[in-house]
Design a protein around this nucleic acid. Structure first.
Lengths: 166, 166
DNA sequence: TGAAAGTTTCAAATAGTATTGAAAGAAAAA
DNA sequence: TTTTTCTTTCAATACTATTTGAAACTTTCA
């Protein structure tokens, strides 16, 4: 396959994949583009290559920086800012996992902890208490696994274990 | 907290959580409602309790059945169909994981396997090949972990291990 | 300081998704 | 067979999220 087509396929697929997981398509596409660029790109480059507006490019670049997936690069003698994606896929996975855990999973665990204490003795309340309890149990276990597996001090171990288990 | 308020909070939160993960809000809310109902509910019940239309209720109930999260229940002497959610949270998590793995992760792994073979020797192609290779490696490892951890014959082990690690 | 080059903001437009509700379809009962 | 009850479909509509683009802002350089 031609590089050009392959790049395009990758960018489209990454965008679609992202939106299935609640990530704005453009953001995922900008990320994809930067992932496969050997050199940092300017806002203009991103706009041109993805055919998106300046505002859109700017907003999504900032969002990616906020997610620690992209760094702002300043070249000496250049006025413009350039953008470069973190290229270590383990780091990427870790950052995304930790961020979503913090923003989405943890609040859910907290809510369930509260809801499972709802008082009452009728069948409806009992069923509610049982389900929220079980969900709290499950989500906090998942939370614990993710916490452990994304701690930087165990990443080396996981990489190794993952290789052995392959 | 009142059961009524607690139920409502749970349904809203589950809906919001779902939509952050690419699941239609109504579908998540219908699921939440069925999760905490001790008895199976009819389409009418769902419509009333969530204030949604017949079409919407029907479509999402069917989607949930398709995802193996809800069963259709026939009561003897009743014309209507009733719906009941699977209540085992491990089973729920397993079904969702396997389904999304199949629908979303596996196609991505396959595409990356193809893209990482893009030929060419310039810097751009090399960077592309490197990144798609690394991503293929990561995604197929994740795929393997999920495959292993959701196989019914190891669920018993994971439940036990998870308890010990708590 | 003023002009040039770039970045950021945000109201309005657009595109994309979800929801409604009425009509058609199906199955059971009369 | 006709009526009744319930389910499913789908075109129209409402809603939400994304994107645009022009204006405001900031920084650098002459």
């Amino acid at each position: 396959m031609e590089l050009h087509d392959a790049k395009d396929k990758f960018i489209q697929a990454w965008g679609a994949f992202g939106s299935q997981w609640g990530i704005n398509r453009s953001m995922a596409q900008v990320h994809a583009l930067l992932l496969i660029s050997p050199e940092p790109l300017s806002t203009e480059d991103v706009m041109d290559q993805l055919n998106i507006s300046r505002g859109n490019a700017n907003m999504n670049l900032r969002a990616l920086i906020d997610w620690h997936l992209v760094d702002r690069i300043l070249k000496t003698g250049e006025r413009r800012e350039f953008f470069q994606a973190e290229k270590d896929v383990w780091k990427i996975a870790t950052h995304i996992t930790r961020e979503r855990k913090k923003r989405e999973l943890e609040p859910m665990v907290k809510l369930l902890a509260e809801l499972k204490r709802t008082e009452g003795q009728n069948a409806e309340t009992k069923a509610f208490r049982q389900m929220t309890h079980d969900l709290h149990d499950l989500t906090s276990r998942i939370d614990a696994v993710l916490e452990r597996s994304t701690r930087s001090d165990v990443q080396w171990f996981l990489k190794a274990a993952s290789t052995l288990l392959r």
